[in-house]
């Protein structure tokens, strides 16, 4: 059912049956380390280049998902997946051997939210009974594409973020499970004219604020409706900005808000500056940490808001600003609703 301008509440919830997560060594050494399914010790995954290494992350995440799920590979009618690389090469080469029809998505670091939302819409419409949603990123392939070759020395400013090496995948189904996607809010492209590509949090925070406000308005709720609101990769700078922007509009989310980029690393000891980023950041944090807390009953209803900064080296060199986008997904534990 359509709600307001940009939200949907599903007539029948779309269930999240299984999730899987694969991360690199650095992520496994972070605060969430023990929660991930697979840890890839060799960042190159035994491949000859970083792009193949990222495809390998996606393959491992899907393999793991297919082991954990009670469905067969053939039961998944579609896959919704994306990454950060040009023309989505990590995704297309990563999924080619599965022979599952695929929708390739680009939403910068918000891709996992986009995949969950489109997957849920597809299942809800009856176009599929089961789908897979996945997103990946790799520190090295992202660094090579967006910044410098890895051997090139540079100083990372305190507002910069560290691209997460990892891939998260989720199996969505129309058959009843404890945890479900009950609604979505789709983000607009929001541009406040920030040009500093080393301060992604500031580029994306207005998009997250706009999305959260739209969600409140469309659904006629406020922050108390959710046990937790979780953004994708705003980091410590974006976190402060988002709280301030929403405070201006009369909402205080500070007590029920966190950010995947802040949760995944211990910034002080792991030298990640403002936090983690990348498609993989929100994907693996969702599949490991957020799902665990929802399944375990700590949170009954969560607004998951992966955020993306929409830039390329071309747009940056041509002097464009860095617009942001955010995708909101409402995830609930329905089994505990009766308590």
């Amino acid at each position: 059912m359509q709600k307001g301008k940009q939200s949907v509440l599903f007539d029948k919830p779309i269930f999240i049956e299984t999730v899987s997560s694969v991360v690199g060594k650095k992520e496994s050494e972070g605060p969430l380390g023990e929660l991930f399914d697979v840890v890839v010790e060799d960042e190159m995954s035994g491949k000859e280049n970083w792009e193949k290494a990222e495809s390998a992350l996606l393959e491992q995440a899907v393999d793991k998902l297919l082991v954990k799920t009670r469905y067969k590979k053939e039961d998944f009618r579609y896959m919704f997946a994306g990454d950060l690389l040009g023309q989505l090469i990590a995704t297309s080469f990563g999924v080619r051997r599965y022979e599952i029809p695929v929708f390739g998505l680009y939403g910068a670091c918000s891709t996992f939210g986009e995949a969950l939302a489109l997957g849920a819409i597809t299942v809800s419409s009856g176009a599929a009974n089961q789908v897979i949603a996945a997103a990946s990123s790799h520190f090295a392939s992202a660094e090579k594409q967006f910044r410098f070759p890895l051997e090139y020395g540079n100083q990372r400013p305190p507002a910069s973020t560290w691209t997460v090496t990892g891939c998260g995948a989720a199996a969505l189904t129309n058959e009843t499970q404890p945890v479900a996607i009950t609604g979505i809010t789709t983000g607009k492209i929001i541009d406040y004219g920030v040009k500093d590509s080393m301060n992604m949090g500031a580029c994306m925070a207005p998009a997250a604020a706009d999305l959260i406000l739209a969600n409140f308005e469309d659904l006629g709720v406020d922050e108390k409706y959710y046990d937790c609101i979780i953004t994708g990769d705003l980091g410590i700078v974006g976190r402060k900005i988002l709280i301030d922007l929403l405070h201006e509009k009369g909402h205080d989310i500070s007590g029920r808000y966190t950010d995947c980029g802040i949760e995944i690393f211990d910034a002080a000891s792991q030298n990640t500056q403002a936090g983690g980023s990348g498609c993989g950041c929100s994907a693996v944090t969702f599949c490991a940490y957020i799902m665990k807390n929802i399944t375990g009953g700590k949170w009954k209803r969560v607004l998951f808001v992966p955020t993306g900064a929409l830039l390329s080296t071309v747009s940056y060199n041509e002097g464009e600003s860095v617009p942001g986008i955010a995708h909101g997904v409402i995830v609930e534990n329905l089994s505990s609703q009766s308590n």
Binding site: E43, W50, F139, A140, P149, L150, E151, R156
Partner: peptide, 9 residues
């Protein structure tokens, strides 16, 4: 001679 490495910091 050398292979690409992951960044340490």
């Amino acid at each position: 001679i050398f292979k690409p490495h992951m960044k340490k910091k």
